[in-house]
Amino acid sequence: MTRLALPHLLLVAISMALAVNAGPLNVACEDKTSIAYCTECSKVGAKFTCFACHKSRAPVYNTAGAVTSCKATSIGLTCTAASGDPNCARCDGIWCQECKPTFYFNSAFRCTSTAGRTALDKCKLLSGNPNCASCSADQTCTKCRTNNPPLKLMPRNAIYVNAGFSSGSQCMSVAALNTQAKGITWNNAVLPAGCLEVDTEFKCNRCGDGQSLVGGVCKSYATGNKCASTLPYGVYCARCSNPNTCVACNGARGLVNGRCALPCRLLYGIGCKNCNSAKCLVRDAVYANGRR
């Protein structure tokens, strides 16, 4: 099943330190397609086709919608002069690829300020998720609004490989989430009691406030991961060596200084199981050939 998903995603703040020419990424799709910086691919006919590039690169498409190369992007004055948008942070040479912090793409695809907005409205705009109720410091959505039925948070790249400049997540009912999961994994989403968020594989990745995911079960911090409730990104930690140091993350999160601060599958595609800010460290054997 070929799926199309998102090459441009809101990432954790540390990812902003990635150099334009960082690499190699060490992901399977680079090998399968022979395209450097390709993060999402699938076998189409007799060959592998690239569908998305790493955030630091801009995709070059052919008429069939496949990526033929991942070209370097520009920043600073070169970028703003090329795009004509003074609030653009990264360009592909002509078009803006990423806005500066606190700016978001409006319907005309211009970087627009969130100044004067409420904290919640800023969260919705910067995360690109209108049903978002809470955001992390990097403005990725961490919780869906309370609803009846309750909504669960899902990364968009769970069901798409190339969705243009849309948001990195969406909020879905359990029924809708299971429909998507069964269409891709042939099973319902894995949602233990208390789960708020699933990862790219439709498995629980985060529990509710005051809880941690340990062994596939949502437990209190005290009996779960042994982390301090104030530990940044602590909701994604599976085990702490002391209250303020995580040593193992849930899902495809990557450790940075004792925190699960990097969403590896968003940074490097579904084939990445663990990463640091510079490259994918561990490939996921399940996705050795890219998307199923």
Rank of each mutant, 00 (worst) to 15 (best):
G290Q: 03
C99G: 03
M154I: 11
R3Q: 10
A81D: 08
E30H: 02
K219L: 11
S277H: 07
N205S: 15
G269Y: 05
N26A: 14
G208W: 06
C132W: 06
P7I: 09
A119M: 04
G258T: 05
C53P: 00
K122I: 04
C275T: 02
V67K: 02
M1N: 12
T80K: 15
A89Q: 15
Y37N: 12
C204Q: 07
D138K: 10
T73E: 02
E201M: 15
P7S: 14
A261R: 03
G45Y: 09
L125C: 01
F165G: 11
N21L: 05
L191I: 12
V60P: 00
C141N: 07
A115E: 06
C171I: 08
V44W: 07
I75F: 08
V256Q: 11
N257V: 11
K100G: 00
F105S: 01
A64K: 10
C38P: 01
R259Q: 10
L177E: 07
A82V: 04
L120S: 10
S229L: 07
M154T: 13
N205Y: 14
A238Q: 13
C70D: 03
E201H: 14
K143E: 09
E201Q: 12
A13L: 04
A58E: 02
Y236H: 10
S74D: 11
P7Q: 13
R156K: 14
L281H: 05
C171V: 09
C246M: 01
L281F: 06
S136Q: 09
L267S: 04
R57P: 00
C132F: 06
S136N: 13
C144L: 03
I184W: 13
S136E: 10
N250M: 02
N62M: 00
L196K: 11
N242Q: 12
F51H: 05
D92V: 06
T179S: 14
A285C: 00
G271S: 15
R265I: 06
N26W: 14
K71D: 05
I35T: 03
V44A: 06
F51T: 07
L126W: 05
A89E: 12
C207W: 13
G93Q: 04
E30M: 01
I94Y: 15
A137Y: 11
Q139E: 13
A193N: 15
K71P: 00
C132V: 05
Y104F: 14
L255F: 05
S34C: 01
N131Y: 15
G45T: 06
Y221E: 04
C79P: 01
A133L: 04
K43S: 05
C79V: 07
R283P: 00
V247R: 02
G168I: 13
Y160T: 13
E30R: 04
S229E: 07
D138A: 12
A238L: 01
Y61S: 00
R90T: 07
L177K: 11
L191K: 06
G269D: 01
G290T: 06
L153N: 13
S107H: 10
K43Y: 05
K182G: 06
E98S: 09
G65M: 01
C275R: 03
T68N: 02
F202C: 00
L267E: 08
K182L: 05
N129F: 08
L10E: 08
